[in-house]
């Protein structure tokens, strides 16, 4: 999906992703969830559009 989707596309994304992870979204909560998902995906675009070298590993380090 596009990172700055149209509202109807965002609603479909919320419905489908929530269904796939078994997360019920009550009708009265859905507009707020769509609003905040849109805000988060707008922030996400700032991250994913930024080119990173291949050798940059994720920050968390696991010490066995």
């Amino acid at each position: 999906m596009a990172e700055n989707p149209a509202p109807e596309e965002l609603g479909a994304y919320v419905d489908e992703t929530a269904r796939r992870i078994g997360l019920p979204i009550a009708p009265e909560h859905r507009p707020g969830v769509i609003q905040f998902t849109g805000m988060l995906l707008a922030q996400a675009a700032l991250v994913t559009e930024f080119p990173l070298p291949d050798d940059v590993e994720p920050a968390p380090v696991f010490r066995p």
Binding site: V14, I21, L23, F36, L40, A44, A59
Partner: peptide
């Protein structure tokens, strides 16, 4: 609503955010 939205963040975004953090 913010927690619910947070549950829907794609893994690709989360991992890239953690790589950006290292950069």
């Amino acid at each position: 609503d913010r927690f619910l939205a947070g549950a829907l963040v794609p893994a690709a975004v989360y991992v890239q955010a953690q790589r950006f953090r290292a950069w």
